[in-house]
Amino acid sequence: MPTTLRKLRGWPLTFLLAGLTGLSVGPFYWLVIAITRKDTEIFDWPPKLLLGGHLGDNLDRLQRRIGLLRVIGNSLLVAGVQTVGALVVALLAGYAFAKFRFRGRSLLFGLLLSTLVVPEQVMLVPLFKMMMSFGLLDTYQALILPGLCVPFAIFLMRQSLAGLPDELLDAARVDGAGEFRVLWSVVVPVMRPVLAALAIFLFLGSWNQFVWPLVALRSPGMHTLPVAIATLYGNKSTTDYGAILSGTALSTLPMMVLFLVLQRQFISGLLAGATKG
């Protein structure tokens, strides 16, 4: 009897979790259905719950209007290079702040943390003028360079590396390893879960970035996917919802693939951060 009562008590929680799961998955399911339907069918009521046969038409219109393959390539290039570069900068800076003693370290780290409270919009005008003076507007460099130094990423790496035993690093140095060899052979393998989790956050932020590419880019051939999708919006009678929703669905694919590939390291990194200290 007690076992039966425990099972009965668990049913409300099960129904609650099932409802929350439905609320989370529902919009994605509707998106999948919508990209296979004509514009006139997308907002029908009651909504259609089965796949249609117009996915190819929607993707074809999307390709013709924004150059789909080109903008996806732009986004992948910018997000990929920026993520790798930001990881390298965060690893080197975090290692220096965590394991080296030098004059002004606390001041520099405090200044770095203070930038976390500065809204991104405040930096748009100075950043635009800087890129214009360098002649980098409407280039990949204008999109990639500002995202190479991410204060939050440096802070996270510094906090993670602070818990790494100094004896482990000293043992490698005694064996004749230089600092870069210590970093590559000792620090990187230990920090792999944290790096994987950080890579997902950095890629997500870069892939979804909209305001700065909109300001820095002028030619349609340089557009990233979020900016290109925004150009499809018009008034209610001219907005191509099938193409827009198809582009939105495509924009989620790289994040899903990246998460599936790095899922184990991502969860390990989160657990390591949660149990540290």
Rank of each mutant, 00 (worst) to 15 (best):
T139R: 12
T139A: 01
T139F: 04
Y140G: 13
Q141I: 07
Q141P: 08
Q141V: 11
A142I: 00
A142T: 02
A142F: 04
I144Y: 15
I144G: 13
L145E: 06
L145Y: 07
L145N: 01
L145M: 08
L145H: 06
P146E: 00
P146W: 04
G147E: 12
L148C: 09
L148Q: 09
L148A: 04
C149N: 04
C149A: 15
V150A: 04
V150K: 14
V150E: 14
P151K: 01
F152M: 11
F152D: 00
F152Y: 12
F152R: 07
F152Q: 02
F152H: 08
F152T: 07
A153H: 15
A153C: 14
A153K: 12
I154N: 05
I154K: 12
I154E: 13
F155E: 07
F155G: 01
F155A: 00
F155T: 02
L156P: 06
L156V: 14
M157W: 11
M157V: 14
M157G: 11
Q159L: 02
Q159M: 12
S160G: 14
S160D: 07
S160M: 08
L161W: 10
L161T: 02
A162N: 13
A162T: 14
A162K: 15
A162S: 15
G163T: 14
G163N: 15
G163R: 14
L164N: 12
L164W: 08
L164D: 03
P165E: 07
D166V: 02
D166Q: 12
D166G: 05
E167Q: 11
E167F: 05
E167T: 04
E167C: 03
E167N: 06
E167P: 03
E167A: 08
D170Q: 15
A171Q: 07
A171M: 06
A171C: 08
